[in-house]
Design a protein around this nucleic acid. Structure first.
Length: 203
DNA sequence: CCAATGATTGCCT
DNA sequence: GGCAATCATTGGC
């Protein structure tokens, strides 16, 4: 696989950062790359959410809950956490922090860079292929089979081309669809690039 | 064992 | 704006 020369795969150490909220914000502008069934696709991340470990009621690992599903969140950062939501959609998360600190960043939306036609086709050419976490996974070819995959693999990883969004174009808000988390539902852990058409929901 | 429920989307009115 | 689709995971019995 040949990437553009100035793209650099993010190293494992990047994902070991202890502040998942800061990491969620920093991931805006980075590029998610998948190479599935010989189909290369890449998209620049424009919307993320932080899930802050065992004290965050919205996090699957709240209360140190360890189940077959959540187990991968307890691994050291730099692996994929993929799970099925509403019985229909695969949601892609990046596990962060050191082992036994179960934190993750949900990647909610991205702007296509490479393989836009592949993404459109995977989404049956309906609407923007990478707007919203379910469609994004579908467009990138992400399924449960990728759960636990290392982001150092060549199948799925995150790269930087040095681009960053200006600080004044980044906004935060409460996370989407977590009303059940009561007071933690109000935490401003969603980050997005404003005026970007791929961002889901309200801006 | 079984019923309830979601980190959503798309189609319908 | 409302709601059905659709199923793995979860927790209670």
């Amino acid at each position: 696989m040949q990437l553009p020369p100035h793209w650099e795969k993010l190293a494992t150490t990047y994902f070991l950062h202890h502040n998942v909220v800061a990491l969620a914000q920093d991931l805006l502008g980075k590029i998610i790359v998948t190479n599935i069934n010989e189909q290369l696709t890449a998209a620049r991340i424009v919307e993320t959410e932080a899930y802050q470990g065992i004290t965050d009621k919205a996090c699957h690992a709240y209360g140190n809950r360890r189940t077959k599903r959540t187990e991968i969140m307890y691994a050291a950062g730099g692996v994929a956490y993929v799970y099925l939501c509403y019985g229909i959609h695969y949601l892609f998360n990046v596990v962060t922090n050191h082992a036994n600190h179960p934190e993750a960043v949900l990647i909610r939306a991205a702007e296509p860079i490479i393989g836009e036609a592949i993404m459109q086709a995977r989404c049956q050419h309906k609407g923007l292929p990478t707007q919203g976490p379910g469609k994004l996974s579908k467009a990138l070819g992400i399924t449960q089979a990728l759960n636990g995959f290392s982001l150092q693999s060549n199948t799925i990883f995150i790269a930087s081309d040095g681009y960053t969004y200006p600080a004044n174009s980044i906004k935060s808000s409460p996370r989407i669809g977590v009303a059940y988390a009561k007071e933690d539902a109000l935490l401003p852990y969603r980050f997005f690039v404003c005026n970007n058409k791929y961002v889901s929901g309200k801006q």
